[in-house]
Amino acid sequence: MLNDPSPEAGLLTLLRVGSIQAPEWLDANEILIAGGRIAALGRDLDVPAGWPVQVVEAPGLIAVPAFIDQHVHVTGGGGEGGCGSRCPEITAHAIAARGIGTVVGVLGTDGISRSPADLLAKVRGLRAEGIAAYMYTGSYRVPPPTLTGDLQRDLAWIPEIIGLGEIAISDHRSSQPRQDEIERLVSEVRVGAMLAGKRGICHFHVGDGARGLEPLRRLLSETEIPAEQVIPTHVNRHRNLLEEAADYALTFKACVDVTAFDDADDDDLSGFGAVTRLLQRGVPVEHITMSSDCNGSLPEFDAQGGYIGMRVAGNATLIADWQRLVQEQVLPIDQALGLISGNVARVLGLDGHKGRLAVGFDADMTLLDPTLTPQRTYVAGRCVYSCDLDAKGAPT
């Protein structure tokens, strides 16, 4: 699968590309990697003679921060139609082939046959394969399932856990949590995250229900919880919810997460359309992120909530919607990168070492061709996905 020699071939890697978006354009075309981090950026970088360096030539490609997908059912979602409707696990190859270097694993409807322990094992397995993987504790359910029996202990003692999610609200599959239960959960996560030195976000699944974002609006209006603690996702399920999400983001200076739905019947509700609409409503691009819901279920229900059927979500639409935002000039590439990289790193509390190409940051980068299609993905300086390149570093 990979063209690059193994990491043991050289203690240093010198990557030569056509251009670098960090996300801003840099007057540089070389990236020096040491110990999994970026050691230098520039042109004609000088590596002392005799030092063990591996040189990788890719002059036809653009280096950008590796993408971050904050909502992935890494163990598979589904289950709404019984055991035969469980979705499959995702592979490291399926992640890296889309230019994604970091994922956050979630449990969904099924917190019974799948557990936080399963999720942690999968996250650690992905890490062993080179993907930067994290997870949320909990699932749709309230009270949420945990690993230690306590939300604060999960956050404090398990490094891979960065928050709680996806807690379901405004959905017939949710536990219909009361307002005081929502407030207690978010408060518990906030304190646990403080003790652990983490951001500790609460990732809320928002369904089709008439209450929409009202539970979160009340949370931010009636308590001292800061808006950065709470991230609603799937806010582009329908037009009214998307409009409410715009008002929510503007009122509370909050972030909202758009899902790149595989099955969006209306282009205005696709990831592309939803981001475009939020921008038109005046929501700052810094307050918008996109995720895939990959390997989750796309179930269909009748008017009474009965299960009809489902498909399995993928992550190709996430990249396609992102490409379209740039290609149709909705956003310049530096701002568009924030939607699936820098903004996400900030939301998750990973922006001290991920989400941009800078000295000291993790050497997580995606190499794009001129059509913005990922050709190589590096995580901590290791090439975890590569298309074949010719002698000039261009895809064959």
Score class of each variant (00 low, 15 high):
311 R>T: 11
39 A>F: 06
358 A>H: 09
389 L>C: 04
4 D>S: 15
372 L>D: 00
69 D>C: 04
9 A>D: 07
354 K>M: 05
365 M>R: 10
172 H>G: 00
54 Q>V: 10
343 N>G: 02
85 S>E: 01
366 T>K: 06
382 R>C: 14
215 P>C: 01
97 A>Y: 10
382 R>V: 14
169 I>Q: 05
387 C>T: 15
382 R>T: 15
178 R>H: 13
216 L>M: 06
188 E>R: 15
154 D>A: 10
19 S>T: 10
334 D>W: 09
282 G>T: 08
182 I>M: 13
362 D>Y: 04
148 T>A: 14
182 I>H: 07
258 V>H: 05
388 D>W: 14
327 Q>R: 14
200 G>R: 11
235 V>W: 13
6 S>V: 13
179 Q>N: 05
207 G>F: 08
10 G>C: 08
56 V>I: 15
391 A>P: 03
282 G>S: 08
111 G>M: 01
316 A>P: 08
26 L>D: 09
265 D>V: 14
310 M>I: 05
389 L>R: 01
213 L>I: 07
191 V>H: 12
211 R>S: 14
291 S>K: 00
230 V>A: 00
354 K>G: 01
177 P>F: 00
297 S>F: 04
3 N>A: 15
59 P>K: 07
141 R>E: 13
77 G>M: 02
310 M>P: 07
141 R>Q: 14
189 V>Q: 05
161 I>M: 02
298 L>V: 10
248 Y>M: 03
18 G>F: 00
31 I>V: 11
281 R>A: 15
249 A>Y: 13
322 W>I: 01
247 D>R: 15
260 A>E: 06
367 L>S: 01
210 A>E: 13
311 R>Y: 03
231 I>T: 02
275 V>H: 10
155 L>Y: 06
83 C>K: 15
17 V>L: 07
349 G>Q: 09
345 A>M: 09
29 N>K: 10
256 V>W: 14
270 S>V: 02
216 L>F: 06
174 S>E: 08
72 V>M: 00
88 P>V: 08
357 L>G: 04
21 Q>A: 12
342 G>K: 10
319 I>N: 02
52 P>N: 09
87 C>P: 09
57 E>M: 12
246 A>H: 06
59 P>W: 02
221 S>G: 06
311 R>D: 06
135 M>R: 01
39 A>E: 11
190 R>A: 13
244 E>V: 03
203 H>V: 03
245 A>N: 07
73 H>Q: 04
75 T>R: 08
189 V>A: 04
70 Q>L: 06
127 R>H: 08
193 A>R: 12
212 G>C: 07
347 V>P: 04
189 V>L: 10
248 Y>I: 06
322 W>C: 00
364 D>P: 08
138 G>K: 07
272 F>E: 06
288 I>K: 03
363 A>P: 06
310 M>W: 09
332 P>Y: 07
190 R>L: 14
302 D>P: 02
227 A>L: 11
147 L>E: 03
342 G>R: 13
134 Y>C: 00
92 A>H: 05
273 G>E: 11
330 V>P: 05
269 L>Y: 10
375 Q>D: 11
372 L>E: 01
337 L>H: 04
79 G>T: 05
363 A>H: 05
45 L>R: 12
310 M>F: 13
151 L>R: 09
341 S>E: 09
369 D>G: 00
71 H>A: 00
331 L>Y: 02
104 V>M: 01
299 P>I: 02
159 P>G: 01
140 Y>E: 12
103 V>M: 01
76 G>W: 15
352 G>S: 08
